[in-house]
Design a protein around this nucleic acid. Structure first.
Length: 424
RNA sequence: GGAGAGGUGGGUGAGUGGCUGAAACCAGCUCCCUGCUAAGGAGCCAUACGCAUUGCGCGUAUCGAGGGUUCGAAUCCCUCCCUCUCCGCCA
């Protein structure tokens, strides 16, 4: 949610920057709603104030033994007017909130215009894609040959876009997650967190998935509906919702390993082969809750922490600065990490690191007490994958494959694999 | 799942219809006193929104949530949520 005060005072500027995200800010509607809201609120509060005053005087008059009937009649009229104004205000307020909640975050000035991922800007590259003396297989072929990746069975058990892993491949998947968590807690100063995989609608509203993107979520049936989390970002960031943090609690850095569930309703036909795009996948997520002035630096640090995973796994990657058309609803700035996949001959997204500034914080009422002003102010929240475990598995399989179809275990993962050096 | 007890400010905890946005205590902050520490004294100490801004400000809302009764609700009624205790069940 954008700051309504800011939207009011810097309407032109905000509209201009939202264009970079291909969002048309409807200024006429906003101005009109705002003006009506203001007038109605003043009217309602004045009526209420008047009614409160009369009601108090009734108590006094009664105690003094005076006739209170004239006062009762006055209040009756006030009540009628007030409750009409109140109803009108409530409707308007809801309309205005809905309007504001549907506006995406304002992108950073540095975000380049663009329509799609093709317009993202490469800002650095690490490692050299390996040259193969044979035709590299993709992870589907490798997984099948190793007997560790099985999509047909998963489809029978659940649906398309699920995977079954077995044996050393399943262990490699677990090893990757363990390795990442340990790296971030031991070397990068993160606190590990275990979180609910089901959350309520308020929580999803806080991070911005609701109300706009319900179609991408799996929803449980029941009186109090719960949703499967699409990313640990949702429960992790909401850890600080509805609270005012002390200065010495910041910055807060959390790492969480969770499964993620996405219905990907809008992606039929994309990446249907293999486990690039699944309804269920594991991810190690990094979260920062920081003071506003720290958030730009925090995004660089967080991105660096995710990069470190790829560097230690010796997987070639590049860092992309997302353009306006590709950046998410809640993000002001996003860096994607794309890992080299020999099976596709392409770099593919394996991490997305975003600074949402105060956008999520405002929606979830996450604040800190600024010692300078002594007032509560919105914190800044950031999130990034460090990394997507399923895609990391794909990357390891494809990059470490040997001509005979076996796969070498990356040096750093061997302690997690019981010393195993090669999967075959 | 059954039975009971509760949800009040950062914490403990008063408060059964108006003088309660809320006593008291603790924690915290400022100042005074003090050689240091401890003790002591005075004051401050919720959040959101709105109005007015030269400044002290003023108004509205909020005592788990939502509805209701009433001129007036933390207080009475209804529904829901949550917590705790006991029993049952269970990893």
């Amino acid at each position: 949610m954008l700051d309504p005060k800011l939207v009011r005072s810097q309407t032109e500027e905000i509209a201009r920057r939202l264009k970079v995200k291909h969002f048309d800010f409807d200024r006429a509607t906003f101005d009109q709603l705002e003006e009506r809201r203001r007038a109605l609120q003043v009217k309602t509060e004045n009526l209420q104030s008047e009614q409160n005053r009369r009601s108090k005087s009734i108590g006094k008059a009664k105690a003094a033994g005076e006739d209170i009937q004239p006062l009762l009649d006055e209040v009756e009229q006030l009540k009628t007017d007030r409750s009409a104004a109140e109803d009108e205000l409530r409707v308007l307020q809801e309309e205005l909130n809905g309007f504001l909640a549907a506006i995406p975050n304002v992108p950073d000035e540095a975000v380049q215009p663009g329509d799609s991922e093709d317009d993202n800007v490469e800002i650095r590259k690490w490692g050299e894609p390996r040259s193969f003396s044979f035709e590299p297989r993709d992870h589907v072929a490798l997984g099948e040959q190793l007997g560790g990746l099985d999509f047909e069975t998963a489809t029978r058990l659940a649906h398309s876009r699920f995977a079954v892993m077995r044996g050393p491949v399943a262990r490699l998947h677990r090893a990757l997650a363990q390795f990442m968590i340990n790296l971030h807690t031991d070397e990068h100063g993160y606190t590990e967190a275990y979180l609910p995989y089901l959350v309520n609608a308020d929580t999803l509203y806080g991070t911005g998935q609701l109300p706009k993107f319900e179609a991408d979520l799996f929803k449980m049936e029941g009186e109090n509906p719960l949703y499967l989390i699409p990313t640990a970002e949702v429960p992790a960031t909401n850890l600080v919702s509805d609270s005012i943090l002390a200065d010495d609690e910041l910055p807060l850095k959390l790492v969480c390993h969770t499964p993620c569930f996405r219905s990907e309703a809008g992606s039929y036909g994309r990446d249907t082969r293999g486990m690039i795009r699944q309804h269920q996948f594991d991810k190690v997520e990094l979260i920062h809750i920081v003071r506003p002035e720290e958030s730009d630096a925090a995004l660089d640090a967080l991105t660096g922490h995710a990069e470190k995973v790829l560097q230690l796994l010796e997987l070639p990657y590049r860092v992309m600065d997302l353009c306006g058309g590709d950046i998410g609803f809640a993000a002001a700035r996003t860096f994607d990490l794309e890992v080299w996949l020999p099976g596709q001959g392409k770099y593919r997204e394996i991490s997305s690191c975003s600074n949402t500034r105060d956008f999520q914080a405002r929606r979830m009422h996450a604040r800190w007490r600024n010692p300078e002003t002594k007032k509560p102010e919105s914190v800044h929240t950031l999130n990034g994958s460090g990394l997507a475990v399923g895609r990391a598995l794909i990357a390891v399989l494809e990059n470490y494959q040997q001509e005979d179809g076996s796969v070498l275990v990356p040096e750093v993962l061997r302690p997690y694999m019981g010393g195993l050096e090669k999967i075959q």
